[in-house]
Amino acid sequence: MSTTRGADLRESLKAVGLRVTRPRVAVLGAVEDQPHADTESLIGAVRRELPAVSHQAVYDVLRALTTAGLVRRIQPSGSVARYESRVGDNHHHVVCSSCGAIADVDCAVGEGPCLDASETHGFVIDEAEVTYWGICPACSESPVAPTS
């Protein structure tokens, strides 16, 4: 990890009031490097930098980063939890129903929350979550038709 990048990650942690630790810096860096990665993929990435880090430590760091707003946890239907560092906007996701690949999709119309609820039930709505489903380019080009 470059010195500048490491300093940026440490500053991000400090800015939200989190103590800077090697596992937190490593996990935050892994999430930035692998948008929409699942926990197991992140554990593998972190262990390349910190071989002795435990599964539980990574889970705890992900929870702390999510609570602090540095990381967003998403879980499309039928998928394990995934993490991304794109926070602070109200973007959505497109998911391949064949291989599970995920990509970001910006809001199609206007300001967040992008959609107006037909009934708020007294809630003050500040975010809408939309998941688009389809077949990614790699699966569309596959000679084997995806199963539905």
Rank of each mutant, 00 (worst) to 15 (best):
V20C: 07
G110E: 05
V25T: 03
S41R: 14
P51W: 07
A37L: 04
P51L: 08
T39K: 11
D89S: 13
E40Q: 15
E111W: 06
A15M: 08
V94R: 13
H92V: 05
V25Q: 08
V20P: 05
Q56G: 14
I74K: 09
I43Q: 03
G78R: 03
R86I: 11
C96R: 02
A37M: 06
H55Y: 15
V25W: 04
D89H: 12
G78N: 00
A30T: 06
V80M: 10
A101L: 00
D38P: 02
V61H: 05
G29D: 06
V105Q: 12
V16N: 04
L18H: 01
P51R: 03
D60N: 14
G88C: 05
V71G: 03
P35H: 05
P51D: 03
A103H: 15
R19I: 15
R63F: 13
A101N: 02
R72I: 00
D116Y: 12
A26T: 08
G78W: 02
G78V: 02
R48N: 11
A68G: 04
G100F: 01
E49R: 12
S54V: 09
R86F: 10
H91G: 14
S41K: 13
D104W: 15
Q75A: 13
H36C: 10
T66Y: 01
D106I: 10
L65Q: 03
P76V: 08
E32I: 07
V53W: 00
S79F: 11
A26V: 03
H93A: 13
E111V: 10
V58N: 01
R63E: 14
A52Y: 09
A15G: 13
C99K: 02
V80I: 11
R19Y: 15
K14D: 12
L18W: 00
C107D: 15
V27G: 06
V27R: 04
S97M: 14
P76E: 01
V87H: 07
A103M: 14
H93P: 06
V20Q: 00
S98I: 08
A15I: 06
E49A: 12
H93L: 15
P35C: 06
L42P: 09
S98T: 14
V53S: 09
V94D: 08
G110M: 08
G29A: 06
Q75G: 06
E84S: 14
D89Y: 11
L50W: 07
V25P: 05
V58D: 06
I74S: 03
T66F: 02
A15E: 10
G17T: 03
E49P: 05
V61M: 03
A15V: 01
G29L: 07
A68Q: 04
C107H: 12
R47Q: 14
D33F: 09
A117I: 04
A45T: 11
H92N: 00
G110A: 07
E49V: 12
R22S: 12
S97Y: 11
G69V: 03
L115I: 13
V31F: 04
R86G: 04
E84Q: 14
T67C: 05
L28A: 09
V58S: 00
E32T: 07
G29M: 09
K14F: 11
L62Y: 08
V80T: 13
L115V: 13
D38W: 07
E32K: 10
L115F: 12
I102T: 09
V80D: 13
S85Y: 04
A81N: 11
T21Q: 09
A37F: 07
H91M: 11
A101P: 01
R82C: 09
Q34G: 02
V46R: 03
V109Y: 07
